[in-house]
Amino acid sequence: MINYIWYFLILIGITYSFFTGNSALINNKIIEASSEGIRLVIDMLPILVLWMGIMNICEKSGLLTKFARLLKPLLKKLFPNVKNDDALGYIASNIAANAIGLGSAATPFGLKAMQELQQENEKKDTASDAMITFLVLNTSGVTIIPTTVIALRQAAKSINPTATIVTGLIATFIASFCGLMLDYFFRRRKRK
């Protein structure tokens, strides 16, 4: 998938610029873009390093587990059919880690949760209800601190780099809610 998208962007960009006579501009852009990419990484670096340091304290002090435990009662409601407590624990940790911007720590928890859910799954090649709900919850996931966004806003000399934390939170809750509602609708339709 990513192969096609990547090539599609490049192909469309270059062919379109030939048609419109923008090829000189594209030529410059090709060289410029790479240094722009490196600059982007350097812009993100300080906040990522700092935040990963802080969040490591959060993880090692047991705060993340505590945070995840708080989520469990809510998750029991969202996943009524999951009897496996470990699965719920991993789901909670995944969501908690995503929420505080620890994306790289969230993925291992997520994969563990999928393994646990797969054990309860009756048809091994088909996604179970719980898996789908988990995926919707994960991808529409609540992000409290969008680290890279803040870093890039700061680098672009924003007067308030953290301005969009609250708007992002509201939008993310609406997205999660709508995704879960549609999932609920699909599940009910199946049962009938």
Binding site: I12, G13, S17, I26, I30, A33, S34, E36, L40
Partner: peptide, 10 residues
């Protein structure tokens, strides 16, 4: 960045 820049500036 390379792909996106080419696409956007075309």
């Amino acid at each position: 960045m390379f792909a996106v820049q080419i696409f956007l500036s075309s």
